[in-house]
Design a protein around this nucleic acid. Structure first.
Length: 480
RNA sequence: UCCUCCAUAGCUCAGUUGGUUAGAGCACCUGACUGUUAAUCAGGGUGUCCUUGGUUCAAGUCCAAGUGGAGGAGCCA
């Protein structure tokens, strides 16, 4: 079955040439003499118009061309006789590959709510909105590999099943092949993990970072790009139980290098989708404009989607220390007027969503990198500063999304790291391998984690993270 | 996990201070018409008003619990 991609057909010069296309019917218009079929194969958001002269086709065939049905159409490509498209395919032969009963097929040529489409996640890729999102998602994934490959980073696959409980990034999903109705117990009644598949308790990974560090301390520059799991009972527009994370790690690099990399990386990704997915972004942009028409003026976005992406690509990010951010927030109007739910008062408190939003959306009106956080609110592996109270951590805050990147310079000094592990109450036996990299040829190194779905959210303008991954996993939901 | 809001036709939604037979657009069916653009025009209503219990002469409407969904918070990417 050889079909020309509709994306290629639409950009071809019409010369009455014979060709075949395959796809799914979006709509059929017309009646007695001629039918107009809008066919889409997912290669582009646009549809190809098929002309079916009723003289040439059985009524039975025409009746089966319904919204959602799958066709192979052979015909010749001509300049369109109507306005609205440049080319159209005059059908010579139409084969119905798969019927879609009009009474049962849930997708209509009309606007559906995103909530409804979430309930039919097996069919939603057939909508313009979701096919656009998934094409943009693909482009971003491809661009990530491209970016790192061009800069000498090696793609490292870190384990999805992990035996260490020390990553400290949240609740984990247990991995076991025990018969859950009859779990082996030790003499004192505890679960006997010695009898489990890996002879120890294992979980799904919450981060590939610690292993990525091992890779960087041999290959100099590596990155991971894989699924990550959190068993948190989070019900928000920006959390998933299963999500994808990108984690570059560089040896011989300090926090400055880390921030430079992250900023350059994000700019590259925005530029890449602007260049490669213009049709999809245009569609999503118009979709957002339509959606926002229902909102009051004050709640509408200041910038159109593509302008927002261009802004990220072209404007430098603001870089401020936690202490500077703290001072700005403490002296800010909403803080003095007690408009914040959490009043900024004492140095050392973690920044809340409302504070991050104030910095990014109101005060600087651009992405903000906050660095040198109080050590008490950050992870054990982050490098301690000379002041003894802050660590070399950095978060990149994006408008509408919040934290899109979290990174740090890693603590490379064996004694300091050991002290911090102890202070965090972690069993150092569990991290013996991690500690050994600091014992043998340790070097300064840095890295960060980028939430892939949050990136896709930003690039597509989608507000709910469940709409930028094909099959979302959230508390109480693992259908499809 | 906490707070708030929502649940009416296949979909999107309206339904007044509780009051007779439950409403619209789209989809669908029938017909007309047409190089149409989510085609148009005429006709056709397809329903466990989320579930259970309660208040009342009377509940889609009020109350309680449950279920499902959404938004915000926390956790974080």
């Amino acid at each position: 079955m050889s079909c020309t991609r509709i994306k290629d057909v639409l950009s071809a010069i019409p010369d009455n040439q014979e060709l075949a296309v395959c796809g799914w019917v979006r709509t059929r218009r017309g009646s007695k003499n001629v039918s107009f079929v809008a066919l889409n194969d997912g290669s582009t958001v646009k549809t190809l118009q098929i002309i079916a002269d009723h003289q040439n086709f059985e009524e039975e065939t025409l009746k089966r061309i319904t919204t959602g049905s799958a066709l192979q159409v052979q015909g010749h490509l001509v300049a369109s006789g109507g306005s609205g498209q440049n080319v159209e395919l005059v059908a010579r032969n139409i084969e119905i590959l798969g019927d879609a009963d009009a009474d049962d097929y849930p997708l209509q040529p009309k606007r559906h709510s995103l909530e409804f489409l979430r309930e039919i996640a097996h069919l939603r890729p057939r909508t313009n909105t979701f096919s656009s999102i998934f094409r943009v998602r693909h482009s971003l994934a491809f661009a990530i590999h491209n970016y790192f490959n061009q800069r000498g980073f090696f793609y490292l696959n870190t384990p999805i099943i992990t035996g260490s409980d020390a990553e400290g990034a949240g609740e984990m999903f247990a991995v076991t092949n025990f018969d859950l109705k009859d779990v082996p117990k030790t003499e004192d009644g505890e679960i006997d993990f010695k009898q489990d598949f890996f002879s120890k308790a294992t979980n799904l990974t919450v981060s590939g970072q610690l292993e990525a560090e091992l890779g960087a301390l041999a290959l100099s520059k590596v990155y991971t790009f894989g699924p990550t799991f959190r068993a948190e009972n989070s019900n928000t527009t920006r959390h998933l139980a299963e999500f994808w994370m990108v984690e570059p790690e560089m040896a011989f690099a300090d926090l400055e290098d880390d921030m430079d990399l992250a900023e350059d990386f994000l700019k590259y990704l925005m530029t890449y989708v602007l260049e490669h997915n213009n049709d999809d972004l245009e569609f999503l942009e118009n979709r957002l404009i339509e959606e926002e028409k229902a909102k009051p003026q004050a709640e509408r976005s200041a910038m159109k989607l593509r302008d927002k992406l261009k802004f990220i690509a072209n404007e430098s990010f603001e870089r401020i220390s936690y202490t500077e951010a703290f001072n700005i927030l403490r002296n800010s109007k909403p803080n003095r007027k007690k408009k914040f739910q959490f009043i900024i008062d004492e140095w050392g408190a973690d920044l809340q969503s409302e504070h991050e939003r104030f910095l990014v959306e109101k005060h600087f009106a651009r992405p903000v990198i906050v660095f040198d956080y109080p050590s008490a609110i950050k992870a054990f592996y982050m490098r301690e500063n000379e002041d003894g109270k802050t660590v070399r951590a950095m978060d990149i805050l994006f408008p509408g999304i919040g934290e899109i990147v979290g990174g740090s310079q890693r603590e490379e000094r064996y004694d300091v790291l050991k002290k911090r592990i102890k202070a965090f109450g972690i069993d150092e036996q569990e991290l013996w391998w991690y500690l050994e990299t600091r014992k043998f040829g340790t070097v300064p190194h840095s890295g960060f984690g980028l939430g892939f779905e949050r990136l896709v959210q930003f690039a597509t303008g989608m507000q709910n993270i469940r709409d930028v991954i094909p099959f979302p996993r959230t508390p109480g939901n693992a259908e499809f």
